[in-house]
């Protein structure tokens, strides 16, 4: 019970995000209208994804330093959750774009960059699966994970800023800061980021534990036979 306080916090914050996010007053803006609520469900996905990717990279570095498979479990499972969040982010973004920009895919630089980012991490999964030896898989996976992250950062943070983007806050479009993000939106936005990130962490932690149990059982079976 002592260590589950953050799970209770997750549920509480998620409930708050859902209820307040859908019911609380939002600023009435032309074109955006009610879709401004995507801030709580779409933008937060990317925050969660980036945070989890950072965690995965840190654990990849830890693995390379220590050769401890436990670190690799954390790295791969956090990447998995980050990919899930990334896919959700793309899908929610496309839905939102359908109603505000008029098309599911408008070739916006950020949209393209996030799609490429996902390709990178899908490739990471395929690379891992193509290796059979556990230690080799962990080591080469970690190397590619760090390498991909180094390319991912300029891709999503630098390149879209160099061109005009349709996204709020880019290319002359006013960002949310220009309106009253401070009064109502912020009250839900920040808790929502924490809530979704915690949910992703929860997912990853459960899977990490599952993986470790599986490995233990496997080891036991192998030792029995020999």
């Amino acid at each position: 019970m002592k260590s589950s306080w953050w799970k209770i916090l997750t549920i509480a914050l998620l409930a708050y995000t859902l209820i307040a996010g859908l019911l609380l007053d939002v600023p009435r803006l032309p074109i955006l209208n009610e879709t401004i609520r995507a801030l709580y469900f779409h933008v937060t996905m990317w925050f969660g994804m980036i945070i989890m990717l950072v965690v995965a990279v840190i654990y990849s570095i830890k693995y390379l330093k220590s050769n401890d498979l436990r670190h690799d479990d954390v790295a791969i499972e956090f990447t998995n959750s980050a990919i899930l969040f990334g896919v959700l982010g793309i899908v929610t973004g496309m839905l939102w774009a359908r109603y505000t920009w008029g098309d599911y895919w408008s070739g916006d630089p950020k949209q393209n960059a996030s799609a490429i980012g996902l390709l990178m991490y899908f490739a990471y999964l395929i690379l891992r699966n193509s290796l059979t030896d556990v230690h080799q898989r962990a080591r080469i996976g970690a190397v590619y994970n760090i390498f991909a992250f180094a390319a991912f950062i300029p891709l999503i943070f630098v390149l879209p800023r160099l061109t005009d983007s349709l996204h709020p806050g880019n290319g002359g479009n006013p960002g949310f800061n220009a309106y009253d993000l401070d009064s109502n939106l912020r009250k839900v936005f920040y808790p929502a980021i924490i809530a979704w990130t915690l949910l992703g962490t929860w997912l990853s932690v459960v899977r990490v534990r599952l993986k470790r149990v599986e490995r233990k059982i496997e080891d036991k079976l192998i030792n029995q036979v020999s």
Binding site: L131, A148, P154
Partner: peptide
């Protein structure tokens, strides 16, 4: 770097392409 990674895995040509394209796009 990617060819170094791909050479460690068996399935070379495809892996080389899918690993390098997203990284090289920037």
């Amino acid at each position: 770097m990617v060819s170094g990674i791909a050479s460690k895995a068996s399935n070379n040509a495809t892996l080389m392409a899918i690993l390098s394209f997203p990284v090289i796009i920037p």
